[in-house]
Design a protein around this nucleic acid. Sequence first.
DNA 1: GTGAAAGCGCTAACAA
DNA 2: TTGTTAGCGCTTTCAC
Lengths: 345, 345
Amino acid sequence: MKPTIYDIARAAGVSTATVSKVMNNKGKISEKTRSKIKRIMQEQRYEPSVMASAMKGKGTRTIAFIIPDIDNPIYAEYLKRIEACGHELGYTIVMATTERDPEKEERHLSLLRSKVDGYIIAARFSNLGLLKALIEDGVPIALFSHERDELSVDSVTVDDYLGGYRATEYLIELGHARIGMVGEDTISSQERIRGYRQALRDSGIKTEESLIRVGGHTIDGAAEQAGHLLERADRPTAIFGYNDICAVGAMLAARARGIRMPDELSVIGFDDTMLCHIVEPKLSSVSMPTQEMGDQVVNLLIRRIEDADMPKQRLRLLPELALRGSTSRPGGDEAIERSGRPAGL
Amino acid sequence: MKPTIYDIARAAGVSTATVSKVMNNKGKISEKTRSKIKRIMQEQRYEPSVMASAMKGKGTRTIAFIIPDIDNPIYAEYLKRIEACGHELGYTIVMATTERDPEKEERHLSLLRSKVDGYIIAARFSNLGLLKALIEDGVPIALFSHERDELSVDSVTVDDYLGGYRATEYLIELGHARIGMVGEDTISSQERIRGYRQALRDSGIKTEESLIRVGGHTIDGAAEQAGHLLERADRPTAIFGYNDICAVGAMLAARARGIRMPDELSVIGFDDTMLCHIVEPKLSSVSMPTQEMGDQVVNLLIRRIEDADMPKQRLRLLPELALRGSTSRPGGDEAIERSGRPAGL
DNA sequence: GTGAAAGCGCTAACAA
DNA sequence: TTGTTAGCGCTTTCAC
């Protein structure tokens, strides 16, 4: 059997209180007893029961990370960072996917309610009421990679608007005027599209609504939407994908139609995931500080767990362009290739 | 505050024992009290504390899923399945990555020890002793996607040997005789290489050890290893990658050297992940029943949790070839393209 | 059918 | 510096 605090106490000839104090570095314990107890804990390979201490109000030292799905590699990347950072601080991470299904949102939340100390929520909840109720109950929550203007809640995001703006602006600088957009029906997509619109406007280009296609959240779905754009007689010379999935979908659509990239079509994505490196040509993308975001949200949530009264905050990190071979001037571009524009800029 | 069983009992004018019985559908309770209690639980949005019932020996209804890293999309895919299946059965999944670091293996195991009812382990443990100790302690464990011949433990895997054999055999059938292999230093890689060797032997082709390169577990690492193969004057006409990561690495290496695929080089991977669909040409791969594997391992582990005495078992599922554009006869192949060989075969 | 009471492993006053 | 004790929220005999 797994030893309990009683076994340790008995073996050491002390009370459980003393053992508890040693474990938690609390109170005053003589060096002699302390080391003796520690030794015995080692010997018996004692591990305190998180359950029991959780019941005493110490929390479960577990955080839930809720995402829409894990098919998009960006979520795997986030998960990786959040897990690493959480573990470092002694927290376990449990992941749950909503698959954009309101029932799952609810089931996960309630299933996890007594198992976790707080939630990091990266999935847009269709049922806003659920979120509101939790917040009112004082459950620690941090929104991640998307905000909710109407909610008083901590959040860590990348500035989607700015990312959309800069990606579009860059395409315009290259000389593109007909720029398509393939998006999704999410909050951050709307923001990126807003940035796209503004960049066009600022350059005096009229936004053509039919160049904005909103589809599913799969590569195939994006390919289909991009296909509509590429079938047009006045097809765009560049496409901005809401994320790398959308952008890769656009690339597949172009490839299927024998449209060469970047000469005949420039494509830029968002998220700067591994996908960028394996497609041909390599995909330019808007890059965000994934690691920083993950670390920040974990720290923020843990602080919130420990201090419910801490002032709420929204942290918005700024994205950068990561330029690669999928973007060039319309009609092709050797100049930029030769000038060796740094990839990280 | 969150209501407890006492609040419900008081509101219903019964004892906590009665409430408990209603929750667990135990004992004999009159329909009247039962429905009354249920109604009150609804009203108060009562949710039993997993912690408290876990302390009474009912388990935490949580399963740990341990993987080496999440950079390889196959693990995200597994996680997805395991999460879905686990949730269906009322279990929460916590994920932890070892990053092949013995210290992390140990830390995760002990950090999770009192939080979970059992472990699904997909990461090769460098510290076999840890695993052995857990098994001896009777902790429910299921190995996943790799086996340990020397351990008496449940496992669910794909038949790596067969997969390696069939991939190689297929390349041979296409007419390749110089077939390189890019592997990793893992148990399943060794098995796949063993299959590769046997297939060559069975066709009377002498295995050339220098055609087998074992590198890291990243795309870049694989590209480097493949590079060594491709730099040779007598470079192979086909490369079998231990997994899709390795295969994609090989493709990048080929592309960087201007080697055309599949005409000048055929490449086949293993795992049949999303990567296969976004590279150009699309990557042939060895496909495994991911969903089935995930479902099986979850069910197996849960049965083990509920019945420690259930006979141990190894379940090995068989892989299939998923053929796409990255493989052809040496020198190019229109015949097969035209014959429209089914992709799933 | 229902309830009283003990106890799971731990922590935090409060005593000693 | 160390121990006693009273729970945390739940389940489970065993009485009634």
